[in-house]
Amino acid sequence: MSRRLQENIVATVVLAVFIAYLITTLSFGNNARLVPLPIAILGIVLVLIQLVKQNLTEKEKLEVNILSSLTGIKNPSPPEEDKQPSTPPPHKSRREIQAILFVIIFVGLILLLGPVVAVFLFSSGFLSFTGHYPPIKAIWFSALFSVALYLLFAVALQLQLYHGILAPLITP
C-alpha cells in the first residue's frame, strides 16, 4: 500500500469522525454546541484541504521548518536511531499487527483476570516470545515484577484491585 493511499485512508477516517461529530452536535441546545459546532466545521474544512493538498502536490508544501528558519541549519545530522537499524525490521506491517495484538491480548487479560495476573502472564509471555529470557527466567522475572506492582498499587497506594470477569467463576 503506497504512503499516499495510507495518508488518504487516515484523512478519510478523520473526516468521517468530524462529520459524525458535526451531526451529533446539531442535536444539542445552543449553549452546548456553541464551541463544538464551529470546531467540527473547522475540522471538516481542514481535512478537506489536507486531502486536496496531499493528492495534488508532490511534497507537503505547508511545512514550516522553525528549526531551519531560526538557525539556518538545514540538515542537522540525523540521530543514530534513525540511521542505525542494525537489523532493519523485515516486515513493518507484520510487526505493527503484532504490536496491536500484544496490546489487545494484554487488555483482554486485564478484563478477564484483573491487572496483577494479567501483568504476570503478559510479561512472561512477551519475554519468552521475544527470546529475551529463557522461559523459566522469564517466569521468575515476571513474578517478581508483578509482586512489585501489587505492592506499589495495592499496598502502598491502597488501590481497590479489579479481579476480572472470570473472578466470580473462580471464587465461591
Binding site: 500484544f102 496490546v103 494484554f106 487488555v107 486485564i110 478484563l111 491487572p115 494479567a118 501483568v119 503478559f122 510479561s123 512477551f126 519475554l127 515476571s142 515484577f145 506492582l149 498499587f153 497506594l157 488501590l159 481497590q160 479489579y162
Partner: peptide
C-alpha cells in the same frame, strides 16, 4: 516494552479505579 506497558495499563486503571480506563 512489557515493563512499561504493564505500568501504563496498571497506572491507567489506578487513575480512577475504573477498568474502562484501561480500554
Amino acid at each position: 516494552i512489557p515493563l512499561v506497558l504493564s505500568v501504563c495499563l496498571f497506572g491507567a486503571f489506578a487513575t480512577r479505579g475504573l477498568v474502562e480506563d484501561v480500554l
